[in-house]
């Protein structure tokens, strides 16, 4: 996936865009003529602005291609840290001369920033486990690691085979942040993890996160109230000790934010882990 420009806002921009497409097409044609075996070409210098991607690259054997990461990326050490995932430092980024930048979302790396770097941008924003696999396949292709990508995909799929069916479908609320109460909505990877594990996220809000009323939690009566602990939820009061949850009959489960809320390889382990919890096993 190369630059996928949005439709221009005005005709001038559109004209410019057309010109660019033409140039690009000419360039590609020229490239194809010049290097008939162009499929052998792949990205070599990668800046990873979304920490969940790094473990994937490592699995693909592309550890050495990573030239820069964000400062909260703990999977890769000894690379240049280029700031946070929402505010990367463009100067540092350009100085690394990457040919590919992997960013979390359009919002984290907007058009305006794209124009200030020479590299191509790849958006890694899967919302389901399947989409993670699709993205892995794409990254594999871009890095010339197709075979390893397929192997990884197979392994992750096999991992899910550990999940055993449940007699009933437990309902879940996933707390992202305690104060104010922020829970995972339908666009969160958590929803997919819960579904894979045999449960159901009962928060039906078409967003990644939603700030909801504690009243609503009592009304929804989840079987499991999962609360994450991590950077987003540093030291939450355990839900069982919160007076307004006194009448809540749910099982309170504490999970690690880095394992559950990030859409990466970890998500598959998280699903298996959650399935065990649903079955009442101590993980």
């Amino acid at each position: 996936m190369i630059k996928k420009p949005e439709h221009g806002r005005n005709t001038a921009e559109r004209a410019k865009f057309r010109l660019r497409v033409k140039l690009l097409l000419t360039g590609i044609t020229l490239c194809l003529i010049a290097f008939p075996a162009s499929s052998a070409w792949s990205y070599k210098r990668i800046a990873v602005l979304y920490p969940a991607v790094s473990p994937i690259l490592i699995e693909l054997g592309a550890r050495d291609m990573i030239v820069g990461t964000t400062r909260s990326d703990h999977a890769v050490k000894n690379t240049v840290k280029v700031g946070s995932h929402l505010r990367p430092n463009i100067e540092l980024l350009n100085a690394l001369a990457p040919d590919l930048i992997i960013a979390g979302s359009q919002r984290a790396f907007p058009e305006e920033m794209k124009q200030r770097v020479k590299a191509d941008i790849f958006y890694y924003n899967p919302v389901t486990l399947d989409e993670i696999l699709v993205k892995i396949r794409k990254i594999g292709g871009m890095l010339g690691k197709r075979e390893r990508a397929e192997k990884l995909i197979l392994r992750l799929k096999k991992r899910l085979a550990d999940i055993r069916p449940l007699p009933t479908e437990p309902t879940v609320i996933y707390e992202v942040m305690a104060e104010p109460l922020r829970v995972a909505g339908e666009k969160s990877i958590v929803t997919s993890i819960v579904r894979a594990a045999g449960g159901r996220n009962i928060v039906k809000i078409d967003r990644k996160h939603a700030v909801i009323s504690t009243e609503k939690v009592l009304q929804l009566r989840p079987d499991f109230y999962i609360y994450q602990v991590g950077p987003m939820n540093k030291k939450p009061v355990p839900p069982g000790e919160r007076p307004f949850y006194k009448s809540l009959k749910a099982k309170f489960i504490k999970v690690d934010e880095l394992e559950f809320a990030r859409p990466g390889i970890n998500a598959f382990d998280a699903a298996v882990h959650l399935n065990r919890i649903f079955r009442g096993e101590r993980p």
Binding site: M177, A178, E179, P180, M232, K234
Partner: peptide, 23 residues
Amino acid sequence: LSDDAVSSIIFWLMGGFQAATPL
């Protein structure tokens, strides 16, 4: 310093009554 998003700190800046308890 503490991290990109510390919920309890953000709470102070926004304000709200969600954490109400009789105490």
